[in-house]
C-alpha cells in the first residue's frame, strides 16, 4: 500500500499545531499575553501607582491626601528623624549583605566544586530546609536563643565566655541588655534568615567556572590567592551580585525582624507599615518605599560599571 506524502490531520490538536506552524506569531502572542499582563498591570502598574503617590502630599491639618504634584514629601525624608531611619536601614542592609557574602562563599564553593552525590543532596537540603519552615517561627526561635537566659547566654556562662557577649553589647551603637535587644541581634537574625538567598546564586555561578580555568591560572604561576582574586571572584561576581540583590533588598524591606529583635529602632519597612496604617500618611510611606528601589538601581548601575556582568 502506498501512503500519501501528507498525513491526514487526526483532530483539533493536529490542526492547531499546523496553525501555529503557519503563523508562529499566534503562538507567541498566546504564550506571552498572560505573563505580560501580569508583569505590566500587577507588577509595574502598582509600582507606578506607588511612585505617583510619593509625589502627592498630605494636608497636615485635615490629614487628607492632596493630589497635586510636589516634592514636599521627599523633602520630609531628609528630616533628621526620617533620615536616621534611612541611614540605619541602609547600613544594616549593607552589613547583612557583606556578612552573608563572606559566610556564603566557602559553603557555595564547597558545594560547587567538591560536593558530589549524597553530599550535594545534603547541601541542598541543608540550605533549603530553613526556607520551608515559617519565617515567624524562626524569628521567635532566635529571640529565645539570643535572650539573656537563652541557650547562647547559658553556653557563654558555662564556658566562662560571657565577657565576649558583654563586650560586644557595650560597643557604642550595639548596646542592649542582651543580644535579643541589641542591633547586633537584629543583624544576626537577618544574616541567618537571608543566607540561603546568597548561597544559591553564588553556588550556581561557581558551578559554571570550569576546573580547567583554575588549573590554567595555577599553571601560569598564580598562587591560590591570586587565582581567587583574578579568576574565581570575577567569574563568580554575577552570582554574588544576584545574591546581594536578594539579601540587600530583603533587608531593606523587612519590617518584622527589627520589630521582634533589637532595640525597636525604626527601619524603612516599619516606617512604611506605620505610616500607611496608623498614621494614614500614604505619600510619605510611598516616598519611603521608593528609596530602596533607587538604592538598588544605583547599586546595579555601579556593579555594571565595575564590570560585574562582563562574564555573562
Amino acid at each position: 500500500m502506498t501512503q500519501s506524502a501528507i498525513l491526514p490531520a487526526k483532530g483539533p490538536a493536529d490542526r492547531l499545531t499546523a496553525l501555529f506552524w503557519r503563523h508562529p506569531r499566534v503562538l507567541l502572542a498566546l504564550l506571552l499575553t498572560p505573563p505580560l499582563l501580569w508583569l505590566g498591570v500587577v507588577y509595574l502598574g502598582s509600582l507606578a501607582a506607588l511612585l505617583l503617590q510619593s509625589f502627592y502630599s498630605i494636608d497636615e491639618f485635615s490629614g487628607v491626601v492632596r493630589q497635586e504634584f510636589t516634592l514636599k514629601t521627599y523633602g520630609e525624608l531628609l528630616r533628621p528623624s526620617n533620615f536616621d531611619i534611612l541611614v540605619r536601614t541602609v547600613s544594616m542592609a549593607a552589613a547583612v549583605t557583606l556578612a552573608c557574602a563572606v559566610l556564603a562563599f566557602p559553603i557555595a564553593y564547597y558545594a560547587a566544586r567538591y560536593a558530589r552525590g549524597h553530599w550535594k543532596a545534603a547541601f541542598y537540603l541543608g540550605v533549603m530546609l530553613p526556607l520551608w519552615s515559617s519565617y515567624l517561627v524562626k524569628v521567635y526561635a532566635w529571640k529565645l536563643i539570643l535572650a539573656k537566659e537563652g541557650i547562647l547566654g547559658w553556653a557563654a556562662a558555662q564556658t566562662h565566655t560571657s565577657w565576649i557577649i558583654d563586650g560586644l553589647l557595650s560597643i557604642p551603637g550595639l548596646e542592649g541588655s542582651s543580644l535579643s535587644t541589641s542591633p547586633l541581634g537584629t543583624f544576626m537574625v537577618f544574616v541567618y534568615i537571608w543566607l540561603p538567598y546568597m548561597i544559591l546564586p553564588m553556588q550556581a555561578a561557581l558551578e559554571r567556572v570550569p576546573n580547567s580555568m583554575l588549573e590554567a591560572s595555577a599553571d601560569l604561576g598564580a598562587t591560590r590567592a591570586q587565582t581567587f582574586r583574578t579568576v574565581i571572584l570575577p567569574l563568580a561576581l554575577p552570582g554574588v551580585i544576584a545574591g546581594s540583590i536578594f539579601t540587600f533588598s530583603l533587608t531593606l524591606g523587612d519590617y518584622i525582624i527589627p520589630q521582634i529583635i533589637g532595640n525597636s529602632a525604626n527601619f524603612i519597612g516599619m516606617a512604611v507599615y506605620q505610616l500607611q496604617g496608623t498614621a494614614g500618611n500614604i505619600p510619605l510611606a510611598a516616598a519611603f518605599a521608593v528609596v530602596p528601589i533607587l538604592i538598588m538601581l544605583v547599586y546595579l548601575g555601579l556593579a555594571r560599571r565595575m564590570g560585574a556582568f562582563d562574564a555573562l
Binding site: 570550569p210 580547567s212 591560572s217 599553571d219 601560569l220 564590570g307 562574564a311
Partner: peptide, 30 residues
Amino acid sequence: HLRNVNTVFQDYALFPHMNVRDNVAYGLMV
C-alpha cells in the same frame, strides 16, 4: 605554579572576563 612548564589546555581555558591581551599577559601579571 612553581613548575617552569606551561600547558595549552584542551578547551583552551581562556579567561572570559579578560581581553586577549590580558589573557596572554596573565602569567606575567601574577
